[in-house]
Computed example of a mutant assay.
Amino acid sequence: MKKAVFTFILASLVVACSSKKEGNMIVKGQIKGLKKGTLYLQKMKDTALVTVDSIALLGNDTFVLSDNIESPEMYYLTFNGNTNDKRLLFFGEKGEITINDKIEEFGFKPEIKGSKNQEVMDKFQEVDTKFTNQRLDLIKKEFEAKQANNEELIKQVEEDFKKMVRRKFLFTTNFAIANADSEAAPYIALTQLYDANIKLLDTINNSLSDKVKASDYGKRLQKFVDDIKKKEN
């Protein structure tokens, strides 16, 4: 009888320990080549990166993580909670999100499905990568021009850089406006146009749908715009 009771208690403990309360956002997938390690689901809270869920992977490269999310926001998948090593950034939202990647290229070209905001970010990053490459090319040209002490070329590179920045700002503004019903729009404005003309930020802010304005990033953009206007007055 005692043995039966002990077995029942043990079984109950196993069930209690193995069952994890799932949030309204489920993140699952596979990291090919991952033999062991702890995978963390993290997000920014104020200015700190906090862990909301984690899973130890021992010989199994599939994972399931979750969190209760009120408004779409950026999340990190990291190993050992260290974003300086390898990290994967994705736009989290309610529902089921599937992420597949490889351990060797973790975070560089992940396959992410189930997040509409991530789809918007992917489209933005396709073009933004071209601007990043242009910036790197101009930095190289400027370095070479300074080495050669070529003042004319240095001035030309500076002008080309200004033109590139203007093109990037205009593209980013138009992209955010075109996706004004996505929480990715205010996020893009906050991370890409923080040093742009207030008119561009204000234009994006005014174009946002009511749903997006009420989101976390929508509220942050409104506050950011309001703070700049106060300083300028």
Rank of each mutant, 00 (worst) to 15 (best):
S115H: 07
N60T: 09
R166V: 15
D67S: 11
L34R: 05
A145S: 01
E96Y: 02
E158K: 14
Q156M: 07
T132R: 15
T47K: 14
K45W: 03
L88G: 06
E70G: 12
N68W: 15
N60S: 03
D85A: 06
Q147T: 07
S19W: 05
D227T: 11
L89K: 10
I26M: 10
L39Q: 01
G59Q: 01
A180S: 07
K43H: 12
T47I: 08
R135Q: 13
K229N: 05
D181E: 05
S18M: 06
D210Y: 00
K43A: 11
L88K: 00
Y76R: 00
N100T: 15
K155H: 10
L77G: 12
N149M: 09
R166E: 15
T62S: 08
S19A: 06
L10H: 03
F175D: 08
T172L: 07
D46Y: 09
I26K: 11
K116N: 13
G107D: 01
F143W: 02
D227M: 10
V157M: 01
M44F: 15
A196W: 09
V127A: 13
N206K: 15
D101T: 03
D181F: 05
E104A: 11
A4C: 10
E70D: 14
D46N: 03
K229E: 07
V14K: 11
S207E: 05
N84I: 00
K229H: 04
V157W: 07
A180W: 08
L65S: 13
Q192D: 00
M44I: 12
D195R: 09
N68M: 05
M74R: 10
K21C: 11
F224P: 07
V50T: 05
T172C: 02
L170I: 06
P72C: 06
L77K: 08
L49T: 02
D202C: 03
V15L: 15
K168E: 14
C17N: 06
D195W: 09
N150Y: 04
K130V: 13
E104R: 08
A196T: 00
S66C: 12
L13E: 04
F63S: 03
V157A: 06
S115T: 03
A189L: 02
I228H: 05
I103Y: 10
I9G: 03
E70M: 07
D137N: 15
K162N: 08
S66I: 00
E22Y: 00
R87K: 14
I198G: 00
D216N: 07
Y40G: 09
N60L: 01
I9T: 03
T47C: 06
I26A: 01
E93R: 13
L57N: 05
D202H: 13
E105C: 01
F79K: 00
L13S: 08
E105L: 08
I55F: 12
T47M: 04
F124W: 07
D227A: 10
N80H: 05
T172W: 04
